[in-house]
C-alpha cells in the first residue's frame, strides 16, 4: 500500500465507488413519460375528410365580411340616389314639357312653310307649356321659402317666372321670340356684355312694349 497515489489509482478508486443508480421507481416514471407522447403521436387517428363538418357561411370570417360589405354598399347607393326617389312629379313635368316643345316646333315649322296662321292645337300646346312652367316655378318657389338655399338661386327662379308672366299674355309666335330674346340677353349678361344686352332688350321692348309692365328689376336696371 503505497502512500503516493497516481492518476490511475484515483480513477480506480472512483470506479470502485461509482455504484449508485437511480431508483427503479424513478426509472419507471421517466420511461412512462417517454412512452406517453410517442403513443399519443402514433395512436391519434386522423379525422376523415368527410366527417369534418363545414361551418355555415355566417360562421366564417369571409361570410361575415361579405355581408357587412353588402350592407354598406346598399346604404351608400340608397343615400346617393335618395333624391331621385322624391322627384317623380318633376320628371313628369319635364317629360310633358318636352312633348309640348316638340309639338310647338312642328307647328312653327309648318307656319313658316305654309304661311298659315297659328292653329288651335299650337296655341293650346303653348298655353299648356306655360301652365306647366308656372306650376314648376311655383313648386320651386315653395321649396325656396322653406329651404336654406341661397337667395341668388331664388332670385334667378323668380326672374324666370316674370319672364313667363309676360309671355303668357302674348301670341305663341311672339312668346317664343320673346323667350328666345330673353335667353340671349341672359347669356350676354352672363358674359358681361351689358351694351349688347341693352340693345337687344331695347329692340325687344320696342317690338313688344307691353313687356315693360312686368319687366323684372334686373332688366329694368339694364335700361338705366
Amino acid at each position: 500500500m503505497s502512500e503516493k497515489f497516481t492518476d490511475h489509482d484515483i480513477a480506480r478508486f472512483y470506479s470502485e465507488g461509482a455504484t449508485e443508480k437511480p431508483s427503479a421507481e424513478l426509472d419507471a416514471k421517466i420511461l412512462a413519460l417517454a412512452k406517453t407522447p410517442v403513443e399519443t403521436k402514433t395512436q391519434t387517428p386522423l379525422k376523415p375528410i368527410a366527417s369534418i363538418k363545414k361551418p355555415a357561411l355566417y360562421q366564417t370570417w369571409y361570410g361575415q365580411l361579405s355581408t357587412a360589405a353588402s350592407l354598406v354598399l346598399v346604404t351608400i347607393l340608397y343615400l346617393h340616389n335618395s333624391d331621385s326617389f322624391h322627384e317623380p312629379a318633376d320628371n313628369e313635368n319635364k317629360r310633358e314639357t318636352h312633348q309640348l316643345m316638340e309639338t310647338e316646333a312642328t307647328g312653327l315649322s309648318s307656319i313658316k312653310a305654309t304661311g298659315q296662321p297659328v292653329n288651335n292645337s299650337l296655341q293650346k300646346s303653348i298655353k299648356q307649356r306655360v301652365s306647366i312652367e308656372k306650376r314648376r316655378q311655383k313648386e320651386v318657389s315653395d321649396i325656396m321659402t322653406d329651404s336654406t338655399l341661397p337667395s341668388v338661386s331664388a332670385d334667378s327662379e323668380m326672374t324666370q317666372l316674370n319672364k313667363v308672366k309676360s309671355i303668357s299674355k302674348m301670341t305663341p309666335e311672339g312668346a317664343l321670340e320673346v323667350m328666345a330674346t330673353f335667353n340671349k340677353i341672359d347669356d350676354l349678361l352672363a358674359t358681361e356684355q351689358r351694351e349688347k344686352a341693352r340693345e337687344r332688350l331695347n329692340e325687344l321692348l320696342q317690338k313688344y312694349p307691353q313687356l315693360k309692365a312686368d319687366l323684372h328689376a334686373r332688366y329694368m336696371n339694364l335700361l338705366k
Binding site: 461509482a18 449508485e20 437511480p22 426509472d27 421517466i30 417517454a34 410517442v38
Partner: peptide, 14 residues
C-alpha cells in the same frame, strides 16, 4: 428510448 436510457442512466445519475 428504453435502450438509450438503460445505457446512460447510471452515469448521468451519478
Amino acid at each position: 428510448f428504453t435502450a438509450l436510457y438503460t445505457r446512460h442512466k447510471d452515469s448521468l445519475y451519478r
